[in-house]
Amino acid sequence: MAELLLIAVGAATVNNFVLVRFLGLCPLLGTSSRLDSAAGMSLATGAVLTVTAGLSWLLDHWLLIPLDLGYLRIISFILLIAGTVQLAELVIRRRHALLHRLLGMYLPLITTNCAVLGVALLNSGSAGSLAEALATGLGAGLGFALVMLLFASLRERLDSAEVPQPFRGPAIALVTAGMMSLAFLGFTGLIRV
């Protein structure tokens, strides 16, 4: 249990998918201008990450490896991810119509969020168990949510700050993200796996 916790915390901080591995940067910049849409996006992406981490592990270990179909890993994982994202979109659209309008195009784009495929592929590359794969997915989702919420809060503050003309807009957002990435490097050495 302690080991699973370590894996999840490690995936959320030391190996944070967004700021350390630089995966899934498009939703980070796209949906982080407001805190509530960032929270919705983190929740949706976190759920998709955890579910697909488990499902892709099952697919990999029950079908792809026994049938010696390793070369189909990427395409079948994408199929799985697309199905899960479609389900998440369906649920959000039917139950939270407003959130669906807020997230707009970025919701189906979770499919092409590299962090989701990244977690699935990294899991199949390591020889971990199903629980470890789920812990990695959950940790990656929590890490994504952490970064999204921090970044969205910073950007909301930046809106009212006096930013020099050449830095306005995406420029200052990218500079901020870079500084956050430097800060996250401070987690290195927190956990030795």
């Binding site: 049938l67 179909l69 395409i75 079948s76 199929l79």
Partner: peptide, 8 residues
């Protein structure tokens, strides 16, 4: 492989 993808 084809069968698996179609089934999935």
């Amino acid at each position: 492989g084809v069968g698996l993808l179609i089934a999935l």
